[in-house]
Computed example of a mutant assay.
Amino acid sequence: MPERKRIALLIDCDNVSHNSIEGVLEELAKHGMVNVRHAHGDWKSQSLSGWIDRLHPHAIRPMQQFAYTKGKNATDAAMIIDAMDLLYSKNVDAFALMTSDSDFTPLVLRILESGLPVYGFGETKTPQPFVDACSTFIYTENLVAQKEEKSENHKQPVKKSRNELRKDTALVKLLRTAVEQTSEDDGWAHLSKVGHYISNNSSFSSINYGYKKLGDLIRASELFDMEMRKDGTAMYIRDARK
Score class of each variant (00 low, 15 high):
2 P>Y: 07
3 E>I: 10
5 K>W: 07
7 I>V: 14
8 A>W: 02
12 D>E: 08
20 S>E: 01
27 E>R: 12
36 V>G: 05
36 V>N: 02
36 V>A: 09
41 G>M: 07
42 D>P: 08
43 W>C: 11
43 W>N: 07
43 W>I: 13
44 K>C: 11
45 S>W: 00
46 Q>F: 13
46 Q>L: 13
48 L>I: 08
49 S>W: 10
50 G>W: 12
56 H>T: 15
58 H>V: 04
60 I>M: 04
60 I>H: 04
61 R>L: 13
66 F>G: 02
66 F>W: 09
68 Y>K: 05
68 Y>G: 13
68 Y>T: 05
70 K>M: 12
71 G>I: 07
72 K>Q: 13
72 K>I: 03
73 N>M: 03
76 D>W: 01
76 D>R: 08
77 A>P: 00
77 A>K: 03
80 I>K: 03
86 L>S: 11
86 L>R: 09
89 S>G: 12
91 N>P: 05
91 N>Y: 01
92 V>R: 04
93 D>E: 10
93 D>C: 05
96 A>D: 11
96 A>T: 05
99 T>E: 04
103 D>A: 10
108 V>M: 09
108 V>A: 07
111 I>T: 08
111 I>E: 02
112 L>T: 11
117 P>L: 05
117 P>E: 06
118 V>H: 03
119 Y>V: 06
123 E>R: 05
127 P>A: 05
128 Q>C: 01
131 V>M: 11
132 D>Q: 14
133 A>V: 06
135 S>K: 06
137 F>S: 04
137 F>D: 01
138 I>K: 01
139 Y>S: 09
142 N>C: 11
146 Q>G: 00
147 K>L: 14
149 E>I: 07
149 E>H: 12
149 E>C: 14
152 E>T: 15
153 N>W: 14
153 N>Y: 13
154 H>N: 13
155 K>R: 15
159 K>V: 09
160 K>I: 00
160 K>V: 00
161 S>I: 06
163 N>R: 11
164 E>C: 04
165 L>Q: 07
168 D>R: 02
171 L>M: 02
173 K>S: 14
176 R>H: 13
177 T>D: 14
179 V>K: 01
182 T>H: 01
190 H>T: 07
191 L>M: 15
193 K>G: 00
195 G>E: 04
196 H>Y: 14
198 I>G: 03
203 S>F: 01
204 F>R: 00
205 S>Y: 05
210 G>D: 03
210 G>H: 02
210 G>Q: 01
211 Y>C: 09
212 K>Y: 05
212 K>P: 02
212 K>D: 12
218 I>V: 15
220 A>H: 00
225 D>L: 11
226 M>F: 02
227 E>I: 00
231 D>M: 07
235 M>R: 13
235 M>N: 08
239 D>G: 00
239 D>V: 11
239 D>Y: 07
242 K>E: 12
